[in-house]
Design a protein around this nucleic acid. Structure first.
Lengths: 194, 194
DNA sequence: CGTCAACTTGACACGGTGTCAAGCTCAATG
DNA sequence: CATTGAGCTTGACACCGTGTCAAGTTGACG
C-alpha cells in the first residue's frame, strides 16, 4: 500500500500542501493536485481513496515533517509555572500557520463529510489533551483562577488558541505573527490565572 | 420586485431559516427550501437570483424579526463602565444562536463565493463597530488595559465573541448558553481591563 | 520473454446549481 | 367579457467537481 513508491506519494502530499498553503481552498481540486504532482487525476485515486483521506494524510505528513510531538515534549512538557502556559501558546501558535491550509480545507468539508469531521476533530483533541495538561499544572501550582473548573479552563484555553481565532486575528485583523503570539500569551494568562 | 407577494417571499425566508437551524448546512439545498416553502425549485430563482443572495436575505430577515439594532441601542449604548462590556457580550451572545444556522451556511460558502464572503463580512463589521464603541468607552473611563491599543482591544473582543467561538464552546465543549454568557462576560473583563 | 505494478487516456454516473422555454391559473383592468 | 400579466408550474439541459470503470502503455525485474 505504501511500501515502494514513496516518491510519488510524497510528491502528492507536498503538492497538496503547497496548493493549500497558497490559494483559496475551493480552488484546490483533485485535478489541480494531480497536475502539480505531474500525474493524471485518476492516478491520485490509486494512492488515496478520496479527497478527505488525502487531506488527512497531508496533516499527518505535516506533523511528521515538523515533528510537532517532539517540540511539545521538549518545550511544553518540562516547563513550569506560567512558562508552561506561554510555551504552549507559543509552540502551538507557531505551528498553526504551517497547518492552516489543510485545516481550512478539512474544516470546509466537515459538513457533509463525516470522515473529514472525524479526522479534524481527532487532530484537535490531541491539542486539547496538551491544553488539559497545562491546566492541570496551573491547578497544581495554585495559579488557576478559582472561578474556573479544570474542564472549563481547558475549554477556554483550547477555544482561545483555535485555528479560527488565529485566522481571525492574523488575517481579518491583519496582526503579525509576532503580535499574535505575544497577545495570546498575555490573553491566556489573563483568562486562566487568578 | 418585492411589492406584492410578501407572503411567498416571507415563506421562503422562514423555511430557509427553519431548515438551517435544524439540520446540517449541506443538507439545505435549494430543492429542500423549495419543498418546505411549497413551491417549485425554479420558483425560488424568481425571488432570489442564487443561493448566496437567499442566505443574505435570510440574515436581514432575522435582524428585522429580532430587532437586533434596537436591542443594542436600548441595552448596550446607554450602559456605563464594565456594564457596557458585559451588556454587549450578553446581547450579542444571546443573538448568536438565532443567526447561527444561516451564519454557518454563509461561512461554508465563503471560499469560492465572493458575494457570500462580502455579505458575512459586512454583517460582522457591524458587530465590530459596536465592539469598537464599547472599547472607546472603556478607554474614556480609564479602564482599558494599558497593554492594549484601542484597535487591538477591539480585535480581541470581536474575536472573543465570534460565532466560531460560540460554536466551539456551546457545541464542541457542550456548554449551556447560560454558562457561555457568564464566562464570556468574565473573559471579556479579564482580557480587556487593567 | 513474460509478468506485474504504476500509470495513462477516455468515458461515464451522480448530485447540486443555475438557466431556458413553454404553458397554466387567476385576479385585475379596459 | 376578453385580455393581459404576474406568479407559478413542468421539464429539459449545461456546467462542474468527485469518484468509478475499462482498456491500454511503460519499464523494471525475474
Amino acid at each position: 500500500m505504501s511500501s515502494t513508491n514513496l516518491t510519488t506519494r510524497a510528491r502528492i502530499l507536498k503538492s497538496t500542501q503547497d496548493l493549500l498553503e497558497a490559494g483559496r481552498v475551493t480552488e484546490v481540486r483533485m485535478s489541480d493536485i494531480a497536475k502539480l504532482s505531474g500525474i493524471s487525476r485518476q492516478a491520485l485515486y490509486l494512492h488515496f481513496p478520496n479527497r478527505a483521506d488525502l487531506l488527512v494524510a497531508t496533516t499527518r505528513y505535516l506533523d511528521e515533517v515538523h515533528a510537532i510531538e517532539t517540540v511539545f515534549d521538549q518545550r511544553v512538557v518540562p516547563a513550569k509555572g506560567l512558562d508552561k502556559l506561554t510555551e504552549f501558546v507559543a509552540v502551538w501558535g507557531n505551528y498553526i500557520p504551517k497547518i492552516h491550509g489543510v485545516g481550512k480545507a478539512l474544516m470546509a468539508m466537515m459538513d457533509g463529510d463525516a470522515e473529514a469531521r472525524a479526522a479534524w476533530d481527532n487532530r484537535m483533541t490531541a491539542v486539547r489533551r496538551i491544553a488539559a495538561s497545562v491546566v492541570e499544572s496551573l491547578q497544581d501550582e495554585g495559579r488557576l483562577s478559582p472561578e474556573l473548573s479544570k474542564k472549563e479552563a481547558t475549554d477556554l484555553l483550547w477555544t482561545l488558541v483555535s485555528v479560527r481565532n488565529w485566522e481571525s486575528l492574523r488575517h481579518d485583523c491583519r496582526w503579525s505573527q509576532k503580535r499574535y503570539i505575544s497577545h495570546m500569551e498575555r490573553a491566556a494568562i489573563a483568562l486562566l490565572t487568578a
